[in-house]
Design a protein around this nucleic acid. Sequence first.
RNA 1: GUCCGGUUCGUCUAGGGGUUAGGACACCGCCCUUUCACGGCGGCAACACGGGUUCAAAUCCCGUACCGGAUACCA
Length: 535
Amino acid sequence: MTTRVRFAPSPTGYLHIGSARSALFNYLYARQVGGKFLLRIEDTDLARSTEESTRSILDGLAWLELKHDEEIVFQSDNAGKHRAAAQKLLAEGKAYRDFTPKAEPTDQNVKEGIAERARAAQGEKSMRDNIYRELYSEESDRKAEAGEPFAIRLKVPLDGKTAFEDRVYGLQEREYVDTEDLVLLRSDGHPLYNLAVVCDDIEMGITHVIRGQDHLTNTHKQVLIYEALGVTPPTFAHLPLIMAPGKGKLSKRKHGEIVSLTTYRDAGFVPAAFRNFLALLGWSAGEEKEIYTLDELVEKFSFDGIHRSNAIFNFKENDPRHWTDDKALWMNAEYIRTMPLAELLPLVKAELKAAKLWREEYDQESIALTADIPSTADLGADGRPETVAFETREVGSHAWYVYTVDLIRTRFFTLRDFSSQGRAYFSEDFDFDPAAVAKNLTKFPELRDWMPELADRFETVFTERGALFNEASIETVVKGFTEEKNTKLGVIMNGSRTLLTGVAVGPSMLSVFEVIGLERTLMRLRSQVGWNMVE
RNA sequence: GUCCGGUUCGUCUAGGGGUUAGGACACCGCCCUUUCACGGCGGCAACACGGGUUCAAAUCCCGUACCGGAUACCA
């Protein structure tokens, strides 16, 4: 029998990172054993389900590159079958009609209400003392025919226990007395969650149910339904939950966007990096390794490697540097600086396009063959792609673009940084960081005269005399200039850096000059914009 | 309340009778350096508590504490 797993989210909001991880684990297992990864949208709560939400879930899965097999199943399409199953159990005497009027919802918090009711019921009421449980079927039929509303409840046996072997948590047992006669069908005929899930899982031929640990008690109820239906239950594997710092629940209400997968996409995460991070939250291959390709995850995945304790998703609100889990941020940076350049380029392109900084000339299609794109494997000792000669790196060309991305990527954390921190490489319209201006410009007032002078020097050497504007010659000129002014190289270099890029950080300044190009270098060294912004 | 889980550095985790309790992130220091990163080297830092079993317990057993989940005519 081929393995069939499913990811079954309810479309009542964005895709939560915990759900995304469930989807990932289902996917990894399915791929590992050559099974099918199915998708089912549990949209039976009509009041809360929305189409945007379904859209967002699909977008999220696509972003993580978790492709599902077969058609998407919408649970609401199967309500008829769910009802038929309940009727079957009723006819077989495994379920009964409960004519008790539906309890009015309390005005307090739903969760609290439930807990309070449960506490109050403790001791005085058994799970089985419903007067309709043993009603003669003729009497039950009569009331039903008379039009009295009723819910259909499962008749949980008096003695015994449900048991299943969880692939993560081991043998799980629960006495029947601890499980109520759960409602299968509401009095308005609406099938309830546990019945719907079991029916659909049977219908879809699900062999392994991999889901959050919060479903552990539901599983006992579902096992009861499987037994009543005469079907062997699938294998279950429950995943530990992802908690907020302080071990509280990670919720949108309390934590906002941080729990939504789309936040990471929009913040400039590399899909493979976030996927990698998610996989390591609550799972380990048991080796000292952090970076895994999708293929490696598929190969190494095992239920034994899944932790039984919940994991904390660590982040600090109001701290821009640690706005989300540090390890996720680090992993993203790690991917950005080490992934094959050919894979990074399209991501950077999308980012620059979104920031309106993209120019068609950058695209390899119009200039060079894809095969010519240097990858990290082609990098020389100085960290630059060896295959691209300076002469071919005209500012704005494809070769220039590739070289520039590769040059600046080593200190970026997100794809967003290419259009923010790295904006000056792609646009004339960039901001000056006040701290950088203070540290590298205002502190040395003489630079206000020197910088335009340096520009003049560059013009003489590179424009009038026609020397090649490359690192070696730039270094000669800048060093000569520094000695002439009897100052330190750092003063000139850092002043130039801030004037040329608006910031105090970046690659080797010689590379920066070269990549910014002679024309823009002259313009920016002479510009007063950086100076003016502090006055 | 009851049922079910869980507890190794701040966080993610390895280890499941004998380990200097390992790695990663974060943080700190040093080196590299025109800056900031990267990189390299180093540092700080953990077996919840109490009993047992054993020559030996982070590891096995029992209890306690704490945390989490569930307890709906929600999903």
